[in-house]
């Protein structure tokens, strides 16, 4: 790429092929998990088990994105926990609203 002459004193560090290989490996895992979801969507019968598999695979993918792409694991431990621990609140939100939805179903139908 024809960019303007490099006059800066910043030293270019050569590529670390191992690191780059690891990034592509993570990409492969993410695409593989997505294709597994696709196969399951057309082969397994719809039901609570299939939905749990989907949610599990999704959280697994989320873990790869946060740890390998966003490098959350490499941050200081207090930062890591201040991001991850508040997500516990979501567990309550899911339980409460699923219960609510099921009750609305009972009233409506």
């Amino acid at each position: 790429m024809a960019l303007q002459e490099n006059k800066s004193s910043l030293e270019i560090i050569p590529r670390n092929e191992e690191k780059i290989k690891k990034i592509w490996k993570t990409a492969g895992i993410l695409l593989l998990l997505t294709s597994i979801e696709f196969v399951f969507a057309f082969t397994l019968p719809r039901g609570i088990l299939l939905y749990l598999i989907f949610v599990g695979l999704t959280i697994w993918k989320a873990k790869y994105i946060m740890m390998d792409f966003m490098h959350l694991g490499e941050e200081a431990k207090p930062l890591f926990y201040s991001i991850v621990v508040p997500l516990i609140f979501l567990v309550w939100l899911v339980i409460a609203l699923m219960r609510e939805g099921a009750d609305i179903f009972m009233i409506r139908w």
């Binding site: 609203l97 939805g101 099921a102 179903f105």
Partner: peptide, 15 residues
């Protein structure tokens, strides 16, 4: 998360 959980709640309230 609030949006998606709201989706799930409305989803289970329908057959």
């Amino acid at each position: 998360a609030a949006f998606l959980v709201a989706y799930a709640a409305i989803r289970v309230s329908y057959p």
